[in-house]
């Protein structure tokens, strides 16, 4: 029964991916921009959720890794004259290295001190990008990156983003449900008990931090490929609000929560928040309501409703 259910939900996701792949045939061009933004933000937020939801680590450095990935694309084009696409394979080891080094530093502390350390380290990266004019063009950013011909046309760029994003999401999913992922949940639930069980807590946390940073950089690289630009504000610490919102809206204790959150967030951004100049107020208020009223996010509420219909407790996926 359980296996069947798992099989069924896999079919649902394959179906959704197929619908997404057919997007350019039924969406207008402007809607493809929206859809691409959803895909990129979903990947970014899902990578952060490996830390936030699964391991219980609050990081304010995730925007920095996203920005570094975007700059990898922009800088190989700007300085080496390579195809900007070379920035994508470059962003992966770069994000991994940066996340590993900063993670090793930040993980000397725990919980709140850890969160503050990630904030400090990410601001350090931001200041470097912002100030190093000769290399990054400073606060001007790099715009108008030339993409290879096969990416011309919004549909082609969209398909490219979708393909990379789906592969990355599958990889993240495999990690999340692996024994390694289960160990992360154990750490979130009780660090001490996890340690007694023989889990090297710091090492697992560092691994999770590195993996999350790597995928964030990949998402940033996709952003630069699709939008053809990179600018320092991508790395500013307040940018972390975007994936955090998405995770909270969608639900942090489910793997697919951030994907649902990304859809809701982008649509919200383009409807409600786009109509007013006070979008921060609205997002802040929504954040407060979620934290105070439904900390489980939309997916959590959805599962409760479904469970009530089925008259059985909701099956919990990553959460213990």
């Amino acid at each position: 029964m359980k296996a069947l259910a798992a099989h069924g939900s896999r079919l649902v996701w394959i179906g959704l991916a197929l619908v997404a792949a057919l997007g350019p045939f039924f969406l207008r061009e402007i809607e493809l921009f929206t859809a691409s933004r959803i895909l990129i933000l979903a990947l970014w937020a899902t990578s952060l959720n490996l830390l936030l939801g699964q391991t219980g680590l609050v990081s304010f450095a995730h925007a920095a890794y996203f920005g570094v990935g975007a700059y990898a694309v922009a800088l190989v084009w700007e300085h080496l004259g390579w195809s900007p696409l070379m920035g994508i394979p470059l962003s992966v080891p770069l994000g991994a290295l940066l996340a590993f080094v900063s993670g090793a530093f930040a993980l000397r502390a725990v919980r709140l001190y850890f969160a503050l350390l990630t904030l400090a380290l990410s601001q350090l990266v931001y200041v470097i990008v912002f100030q190093w004019y000769s290399f990054t063009r400073g606060d001007n950013g790099i715009h108008g990156i030339d993409m290879p011909e096969f990416l011309n046309g919004t549909a082609n760029a969209y398909w490219f983003v979708l393909a990379v994003m789906v592969v990355a999401m599958i990889a993240l999913r495999v990690i999340a449900v692996s024994p390694f992922g289960a160990a992360l949940v154990a750490i979130r639930e009780n660090r001490q008990r996890a340690a007694f069980l023989g889990i090297n807590v710091k090492r697992y946390e560092l691994a999770a931090f590195t993996i999350a940073g790597t995928f964030a950089a990949l998402a940033g690289a996709l952003f630069a490929v699709f939008n053809r630009e990179a600018y320092p504000n991508l790395l500013f610490w307040t940018e972390n609000s975007v994936p955090i919102f998405i995770i909270l809206i969608g639900g942090m204790f489910r793997f697919w929560g951030p994907l649902i959150g990304a859809v809701v967030y982008v649509l919200l951004e383009e409807t409600v928040a786009g109509q007013t100049e006070y979008s921060h107020f609205i997002l802040g208020a929504i954040l407060l309501v979620i934290v105070l009223v439904i900390p489980g996010g939309i997916e959590g509420v959805g599962e409760k409703v479904v469970a009530r219909f089925r008259k059985q407790p909701a099956e919990v996926e990553v959460a213990a």
């Binding site: 936030l52 921060h280 107020f281 802040g284 407060l288």
Partner: peptide
């Protein structure tokens, strides 16, 4: 959890910034 407190004060940051601007 402490992270919800942190996120709540972060929500307040966003709200106050726009209230001041208003």
């Amino acid at each position: 959890e402490h992270l919800l407190q942190l996120l709540a004060t972060y929500g307040v940051v966003l709200v106050i910034a726009d209230v001041v601007r208003y």
